[in-house]
């Protein structure tokens, strides 16, 4: 399937889902789905740099927070319509991604991961000390009382935006994967030096991949302030974003765009279910145990299983 067909299909399905969801009377579906979709975007975005290119980003929370805080800033400063805020947050996080891309010039492997972690701490400190966006106190972002498109509640609008953004993230990820860019990135992942010798424009590709990855993560964060109504730094920079955006592609499989999607749907749903069924410390335990089990027993994630199964069937 060509990328264009795929994109058309993805957006058609996304629109269909949006329309179909209007008949779901239950708001819990929307907020739970919102969370899972948010993780799909984060996992997909992380995978562009982490899975395709082999640079482990520990600072997903920072990109997410840049998206969220750009919305907070614009809300306070100009109060523009939602699409503008989404676009602005995506761009801002993309710029941060570009900066992180330059870090890849000098660092590889764990050093890069630690640099992104450090970057996240530095950004956190800046946000805490930036009073205009609420600083340590946090900021209140009120959901508008009027909801456009005849939707019943604002969460439905946020959910619909999330569905479309998820489709966009998947289309972008798949396009990168199947194009010459994806092959270049894979070459970098396998052996950066050899790739460079073979004429792969490694720097440009890395910058591109870091920028796109960062922008998508930021995009996932742009609607977060409206979802919560109240943002404070520790919520926006929560460790769970960094952990989940690594764990989900790992569980799903990192070689293709389908892996993070499956991982996010699986782990995200399990988290949602566990949260409302086993309400105690045990729910963190489940994430921990799942993580350990998957990396020990299914080293290539669920997609690894699927591929192995397919290969066996062909034979």
């Amino acid at each position: 399937m060509s990328n264009r067909t795929f994109a058309a299909a993805a957006f058609t399905i996304a629109l269909a889902i949006v329309v179909a969801s209007r008949f779901i009377p239950n708001d819990y579906f929307f907020s739970a789905a919102y969370t899972v979709l948010q993780f799909i975007i984060l996992a997909t975005a992380w995978n562009i740099l982490g899975g395709y290119t082999g640079y482990v980003n520990f600072g997903s929370a920072a990109f997410f927070a840049v998206g969220a805080y750009s919305t907070v800033f614009l809300y306070k400063a100009l109060h523009p319509p939602l699409p503008v805020m989404i676009l602005a947050g995506t761009l801002a996080a993309g710029v941060l991604g570009l900066a992180v891309g330059y870090l890849t010039l000098r660092m590889r492997g764990v050093f890069f991961a630690i640099a992104t972690l450090a970057l996240s701490v530095v950004l956190y400190t800046f946000v805490v000390n930036w009073d205009y966006v609420g600083g340590a106190r946090g900021a209140y972002i009120l959901q508008p009382r009027e909801v456009p498109f005849g939707l019943r509640r604002y969460i439905h609008l946020l959910y619909s935006a999330m569905v479309l953004m998820t489709a966009l993230a998947l289309v972008v990820a798949r396009a990168i994967e199947t194009s010459f860019i994806g092959r270049g990135l894979a070459a970098i992942r396998d052996d950066e030096l050899a790739a460079e010798c073979a004429g792969v424009p490694t720097l440009r590709l890395k910058l591109f991949s870091a920028t796109v990855s960062g922008a998508l993560m930021g995009m996932a964060g742009t609607t977060f302030p409206f979802y919560l109504s109240y943002v404070e730094p520790s919520a926006a920079f929560n460790l769970s974003y960094a952990v989940n955006s690594i764990a989900m592609p790992l569980i799903g499989g990192m070689m293709s765009w389908v892996g993070p999607l499956i991982g996010a749907v699986l782990l995200g749903t399990v988290q949602q279910v566990v949260q409302v069924t086993i309400s105690s410390a045990w729910n963190l335990l489940i994430v921990g145990v799942l993580l350990v089990l998957f990396v020990t027993l299914a080293p290539n994630g669920i997609m690894g299983w699927v591929d192995a199964w397919r290969r066996r069937r062909k034979r």
């Binding site: 492997g109 963190l284 145990v289 993580l291 350990v292």
Partner: peptide, 19 residues
């Protein structure tokens, strides 16, 4: 296959110990 998966493994251990 230690690098990334090992990292995730220890993340899991971190949570399990914490809980």
């Amino acid at each position: 296959q230690e690098s990334l998966r090992g990292l995730a493994f220890f993340f899991g251990i971190l949570f399990i110990t914490e809980v």
